[in-house]
Design a protein around this nucleic acid. Structure first.
Lengths: 315, 315
DNA sequence: TAAAAATACTCCATAGGTATTTTAT
DNA sequence: ATAAAATACCTATGGAGTATTTTTA
């Protein structure tokens, strides 16, 4: 009932900062982990100490060590933050409001990348339910616009009206895929000279015109020429591998495709030089999405930011 | 380890706001209780709901009702805040740093007032140890300046170099104290005419010259004249009562003095008209007090603010 | 229509960033 | 000499205030 509150000015933020520093025992590293600069972290810790009236760390310019009070505080703070997260998760659930997020994803995003994204989202939004469906970019965009999809993941090729997007993953390196017993299979690395007598097998332009064009442009700019370009209605990695194995031509696809297919015994993967990469993978959403998605979208931005910097190797 | 945090932007502040609203179920009252305006409370609650992705209250312009999610959240938030307070208290203790606060207080501050102040301070600073000592203002000031006293409580009479202070209590109403069988004891209320043939008994000017002068000035301005002013080295209420009982003269002291003395049977207390009041009671500290007192001083300011508004009746 | 919540704006406190200095090894 | 924390300074987000509008019992 008293209007006077204990430890005014101390916020969850300070607790998180404290815990990070307590674990790292190094202002620079803790700040990096918190994705902030070192000076504001110093200031925040000092402010926390002031608010508590207790010194939490004994520091010299070489060492940071928790004081007795710091250890006591850490003991309390850890479960406190955990309880907070639990409270949030529980509340989200009980609301039933955070209806399942429908996420569209093009088939050629490596499964590990997709999973590392979903993992981080679940960490940021404990209550969230996700339902990932395989959709081509055009389908994704129209569903984002009519509200039957919350987020879409595809390779960037062009902008769309009413759609916001941020980079999620860097473009993957491309490799050449050719039939096992192809004459070029004996070489480790293939270049423009090797490929100029080959046919390029690529997904049908109708599937995703903008991406199709962009890839062909990239190929041209990198100095590659092909005898012909053959379109195939390939959607999955398996389709591509089969087309290659059946002699349609050489495919240029991300390195990771080898692992994703059971056709590994039928096709060979070879590096190419000069290298090329796919357009970066982006995540998109409707600009006018309902208000209850705003914060989730903020998390999406944050997660995307982390993934783009650290890569999906984080797991 | 993940840098992505759950429910970003939610701070303890929001939890406090939420709980206040959950209990009041009325934005206006909750805001008042939180000592803030209503619109920012609306905004904060909305922001909290956004961050959680869940509606916590169902509101019309007439009613505010918690949703199911709101009830769930409240269940979590209550112990969470309690744990936080406990964590702060524990940490303060363990640090041992919040060395006992030495608080000086002049003798004529009513004990209830002093206690209500100490209560609120303990609420705001759970770990705090207080040691109150009876000191005259001059002594308090010099000890504040040399750092052997953290806070001083006295009646305002003048400013001092290097000393900050804020009002703590309004000045008390003065009453006249006279011997039980004094000729004026038959009257209920005494005025200037009654007292002009009396001697005024007052504490020695040497004790606190500024306050002494200020009281005499107040007496004069209120239109009171006395036959003479007699100084006595009185310090405690008991001293004053004894001086009065022994016939030194009439004393003008706060109403509450009657209760504080066991000399009640020897002296009578009478209201005076026109009324006079003591200078307000202030709490003071050294402007250059050590950094670990800064936050406590902030609490002192806050507590003083509340007490001055609500009065010590709060208990 | 009246009480209460939501909006619209304004302001300022402060969180956080950058550049630099201090300090201890 | 160097790595790391502290300090100084700056910017800008957003928390909180005042005035006003909208809403529904």
């Amino acid at each position: 009932m008293t209007a006077i509150q204990c430890a005014p000015g101390v916020e969850l933020r300070h607790l998180r900062y404290f815990l990070a520093l307590f674990e790292e025992l190094h202002f620079g590293r803790a700040a990096a982990r918190l994705q902030m600069a070192q000076p504001p972290l110093s200031q925040s810790i000092r402010k926390l100490e002031d608010a508590l009236g207790v010194r939490l760390f004994h520091r010299t310019s070489r060492t940071v060590a928790p004081t007795e009070a710091g250890r006591v505080f850490a003991e309390h703070v850890r479960p406190l933050l955990a309880n907070f997260e639990a409270a949030v998760a529980d509340t989200k659930h009980s609301g039933g409001t955070t209806s399942e997020l429908r996420i569209g994803c093009v088939p050629d995003v490596p499964i590990e990348r997709l999973l590392s994204f979903l993992d981080l989202m679940r960490a940021a939004y404990p209550g969230v339910q996700t339902q990932v469906m395989q959709l081509m970019p055009r389908e994704q965009v129209s569903r984002l616009q009519d509200g039957t999809l919350e987020y879409g993941i595809f390779h960037y090729a062009e902008d769309h009206e009413g759609i916001d997007l941020v980079p999620l993953f860097a473009g993957e390196q491309l490799a050449a895929f050719l039939p096992k017993n192809h004459r070029l299979a004996v070489k480790d690395v293939l270049g423009p000279d090797d490929l100029e007598e080959e046919d390029l097998a690529i997904f049908s332009r109708a599937n995703d015109p903008a991406l199709h064009d962009r890839i062909l442009a990239t190929v041209g700019e990198a100095g590659y020429r092909f005898r012909s370009v053959r379109e195939a209605g390939c959607v999955t990695a398996r389709d591509v591998m089969l087309a290659v194995a059946s002699g349609l031509g050489v495919a240029l696809r991300p390195f990771s495709f080898k692992d994703a297919s059971d056709a590994g015994s039928l096709v060979s993967r070879r590096s190419i030089s000069p290298p090329m990469e796919m357009p970066e993978t982006v995540i998109a959403w409707a600009s006018n999405a309902p208000r209850n998605l705003r914060m989730i979208t903020e998390s999406v931005r944050a997660v995307a930011d982390v993934l783009r910097q650290t890569g999906p190797a984080d797991r």
